[in-house]
Amino acid sequence: MTDTPFLPRDLDWHPPALHHDYRSSRLRAPQQKLLHIPQTETELTGPTFGQGDLGPLDDDLILNYAANGQSAQGPRIIVHGKLLDENGRAVPNKLIEVWQANAGGRYRHVNDGYLAPLDDNFGGCGRCLSGADGRYSFRTILPGPYPWPNGANDWRPAHIHFSVFGDGFAQRLITQMYFEGDPHIKLCPIVQSIPDDTAINRLVARLDMDATVPMDIRAYRFDIVLRGRQATVFENQMEGT
């Protein structure tokens, strides 16, 4: 059996399974403590992806569901950043999948009946690979906030869902990205299930005027950090290359 090359996950940094204000967690949160086990080849490995798995418009949500010559409605934005690990190293060639509501806060999903209209030209589904330097980027429109059945009057802040693959299944992560200045961040039971304000702040993308294209599209910067590696393994890898 291999020892533990990924750093342990800080479970106090992640939201607890049960967060009473988030109603859906009440019947779905395991009641037993997670059983800590050593990492084996099963957890240290995972699927790999290449450019051949992706189409040319996969990273462009403005166009990838739009009819010819048309585009999605809403403020145009670039979301970009770096995929890193806790050692600060770039994590290259990893699949990042995103999904989101349209500019009015409506999902293109058979189960979403919110009264905001669908946008014929917007699917809300995209994906990209991190580059050799860990950089990733996609184009989309600013999603709208939406109400959801939880408390009497709960609204999600505008957000984009992220699914990220790492080097091994132990690094697999699903999270959400929020937008700087959104007053709903403080009010949202899902966001506030995260115990530490620093951790919440890390999920908030910042307006990035340097990457904004004048007269075209604004940019938001969002770095994604996956679990790091144990230092000893890091050194061995350095020697081996």
């Binding site: 166009l63 990838n64 806790e86 058979v110 699914s163």
Partner: peptide
């Protein structure tokens, strides 16, 4: 340099990970 905190995949995870099951057909 801590791992990003996890958040729920929510009820519409299909759109991002298995879009055909959410009813997305016309996607390029």
């Amino acid at each position: 340099l801590k791992e990003n905190a996890s958040q729920t995949a929510g009820p519409y995870v299909h759109i991002g990970c298995m879009p055909q099951t959410a009813g997305l057909k016309r996607r390029n």
